[in-house]
């Protein structure tokens, strides 16, 4: 479904992503694992069009999407839950969720009614959000913010979900909850690309994984085989 060929990207100066080729098959969950600064976030941003790749291709459903603006890529069905969540903090929880479905909703018409089915679905999944639907997103706690970010992404009914560091800044107990949610999403047949610093958990929920170090893929394979690979663990605890 998604395939990158020799993708290069970066901010000013050197490339942070130095020729990465990955593949995500329909219905699978693929993990990108690597330490902070390895280039995972840059890769993910390049996939979504937030930064323009300096070279290589990104094929989504067989079409090259390099150079399209992020909004266009989002409309084609790739949804990113960005690192650090990036909620619309002055807006309410419900408005955040509605914005997730923005391309489907009427600009001036009764948008709440159009989206009511999806909203109900999200509130069933995350009852905490239903309780706080009229609160400002910025006033939520860290765990609730992450749920909202996930919910906003699901509202888009994406074909491919990309999760960038969903565990970032959360207490361990909440991290477990987030991973449980990811597992259940995967069980519904959703295609997921997960970028994660927690190697163990990421390998547990995914089918395949790429180990990324300094902008390149150093190892790839099924998650089960990587989890047994001592080299992977070494990269983390030295």
């Amino acid at each position: 479904m998604l395939k990158t060929e020799n993708l290069r990207a970066g901010y000013s100066g050197d490339d942070a992503v130095r020729g990465i080729s990955i593949e995500v098959a329909e219905g699978s969950c693929v993990a990108l694992v690597g330490a902070n600064g390895a280039g995972k976030s840059t890769l993910v941003k390049a996939l979504c069009g937030l930064i323009e790749p300096r070279g290589g291709k990104v094929l989504f459903g067989g079409k090259n999407i390099v150079g399209l603006p992020a909004s266009e890529i989002a409309r084609r069905g790739i949804s990113l839950c960005p690192e650090g969540r990036h909620l619309f903090s002055p807006l309410t929880v419900e408005e955040n969720l509605l914005l997730g479905a923005y391309p489907r909703l009427p600009s001036f018409g009764p948008f709440r009614r159009t989206a009511s089915g999806d909203l109900r679905h999200i509130y069933e999944m995350f009852p905490r959000l239903a309780e706080r639907r009229f609160q400002q997103a910025g006033s939520l706690s860290g765990g609730e913010q992450q749920m909202l970010a996930l919910g906003r992404m699901l509202m888009a009914r994406p074909r491919l979900m990309i999760l960038d560091e969903p565990s970032m800044g959360l207490a361990p107990i909440l991290v477990k909850e987030i991973f449980k949610t990811i597992s259940s999403l995967r069980a519904t047949g959703m295609t997921i690309l997960l970028s994660e610093q927690f190697a163990k958990s990421a390998l547990l929920v995914s089918d395949r994984a790429y180990i990324i170090e300094r902008g390149s893929v150093v190892l790839e394979g099924t998650s089960a085989s990587l989890a047994k690979n001592p080299a992977v663990m070494e990269a983390y605890l030295g």
Binding site: H86, P90, Y102
Partner: peptide, 25 residues
């Protein structure tokens, strides 16, 4: 209106708005 909320979203976080499919320009 949805378009008004979208404009507010762009002011709050332009990248995140783009990720929601809002054409920020």
């Amino acid at each position: 209106t949805m378009i008004g909320i979208a404009v507010q979203a762009v002011s709050a976080d332009q990248d995140a708005a783009e990720l929601c499919g809002i054409r920020s320009r």
